[in-house]
Simulated scan of single mutants.
Amino acid sequence: MDLVITSLEAWDGVWRRNQHLVAGLLRRDADLRVLFVEPATDPLHAALGAGQPRLGRGLRQSPPVDGIRPEALWLLEPTKWLPRRVDRRVDERWARLVLRTTRSMGMTEPLLWVNDPTGSLLVEATPWPSLYDVTDDWTLAERAAAETDRVVAQEHVLLARCEEVVVCSPALAASKGADREVTLVPNGVDTAAYRVVRDRPTDLPAGRCAVYVGTLHGDRLDLDLCAATARALAGSGHLVLVGPDALVPEQRGRLEAAGVVLLGARPSTDVPAYVLHADVLVVPHVVTPFTDSLDPIKLYEYQASGRPVVSTPVAGFRDVDDPLVTVAGQETFTAAVVGLLSTGEGPTAAADPERAAGADWSRRVDQLVDVLGRLRDRDRRA
């Protein structure tokens, strides 16, 4: 079986939902072959934003992954040459590149898994049986009107024409399932990674640490709350943010000026060490319709660690029945973190992964196998 995935995330050292699920599928099915379409590079945008411009790497085999045949997983990283406001056909060029690549690989009748809504162009252009996997409701994110209109139009096509729709959260199940059937496949955790005793990371600041693990993004992080918490901890501990940095320079500067320690992205294999050696784990997220659509992977990672958690009342954390999770609003969040940091017994580096055993990625792969099986059966009947 061949599978084409249009992903919102690159295949890199920071494993998220797509990588865990794809790796699980490939380990189970020796005949499966996957083309994983990564987000396009944007060299012009990078240059204007003082980033490091580079071209997309095109088609290539994936780096080695345990238990996966090298020829089973291929990555495609396109290049976006111009912004959409200049090149009105940028998405069409992207779709043609994907189609040319599938033909060059001999993928004549693949299944299509759409995570990046731009994949709606492939749904319209091909007869491929298709699955829409909704992991974030980008129709609710604060974006320019043209961008929001584009995403809304693409999602309209996907919800109307995809044979299967998968969502990761109850909120998405309610919103996307209002007019059609959807399947809830939540996020998960690699519980085996939390059964290993790990040394304290050398870049974790000395002393007591409140640690956040996840992508640093203005759509999610409450920057004012992070800054206030870091200032309140000054002299007694540190607020440490670990994860890919998607902040703009002004946002990053505000956090650093308040004393927040930004460690940047770390390979997923190293993340359990940061989680296990936190004195307190934190979720200083804004509460918005967009964040309410999420199913935070960190919920399951934090639970597997057995460490105390303080979270704003965001989806996932506000709903869980867990004595180690303290849900606090903006007014009480900082005090809750300071209180736990000053009275806690400190990390033991001994996890309790059984607390999250029901959310192991292997169970999520089981669910996705069923969905893909239905998709394949529909194709055969057609």
Rank of each mutant, 00 (worst) to 15 (best):
Met1Phe: 08
Val4His: 08
Val4Thr: 07
Ile5Asp: 11
Ser7Asp: 08
Leu21Thr: 14
Ala23Asn: 13
Ala30Trp: 00
Ala30Phe: 01
Asp31Ala: 14
Asp31Cys: 10
Leu32Met: 11
Arg33Leu: 00
Val34Ile: 03
Ala40Cys: 06
Thr41Met: 05
Leu44Asp: 11
Leu44Lys: 14
Ala46Thr: 05
Pro53Cys: 07
Gly56Tyr: 00
Gly58Phe: 02
Gln61Cys: 05
Gln61Trp: 01
Arg69Tyr: 08
Glu71Lys: 08
Leu75Asp: 09
Glu77Cys: 15
Leu82Ile: 08
Pro83Met: 06
Glu92Ser: 15
Thr102Arg: 05
Met105Pro: 03
Met107Gln: 08
Leu112Asn: 13
Asp116Tyr: 03
Pro117Asn: 10
Gly119Asp: 02
Ser120Cys: 10
Ser120Pro: 04
Leu121Asn: 10
Val123Glu: 11
Glu124Gly: 13
Val134Lys: 02
Leu140Phe: 09
Val151Arg: 04
Ala153Glu: 12
Val157Gly: 14
Arg161Ser: 13
Val165Tyr: 05
Ser169Ala: 15
Ser169Ile: 04
Ala174Leu: 06
Ala174Ser: 12
Lys176Val: 03
Thr183Ala: 13
Val185Met: 11
Asn187Thr: 08
Asn187Glu: 06
Val189Ala: 14
Thr191Trp: 00
Ala192Phe: 07
Ala193Val: 09
Pro201Lys: 07
Leu204Val: 07
Gly207Gln: 08
Ala210Gln: 09
Leu221Ser: 13
Leu225Arg: 09
Ala232Phe: 00
Ala234Trp: 03
Gly235Thr: 05
His238Phe: 07
Val240Ile: 08
Val242Lys: 06
Glu250Gln: 11
Arg254Ser: 14
Arg254Gly: 14
Leu255His: 13
Arg266Val: 04
Arg266His: 07
Asp270Leu: 04
Ala278Tyr: 00
Pro284Asp: 06
Leu294Glu: 00
Pro296Ile: 02
Gln303Trp: 00
Ala304Pro: 14
Arg307Ala: 15
Thr312Gln: 05
Val314Trp: 00
Asp321Ile: 08
Gln330Asp: 03
Gln330Val: 01
Glu331Lys: 08
Thr334Met: 04
Val338Cys: 13
Leu341Val: 14
Gly346Arg: 09
Gly346Thr: 08
Asp352Pro: 13
Gly358Met: 05
Ser362Gly: 10
Arg364Tyr: 11
Val365Ala: 14
Leu368Ala: 12
Asp370Val: 15
Leu372Pro: 15
Arg376His: 12
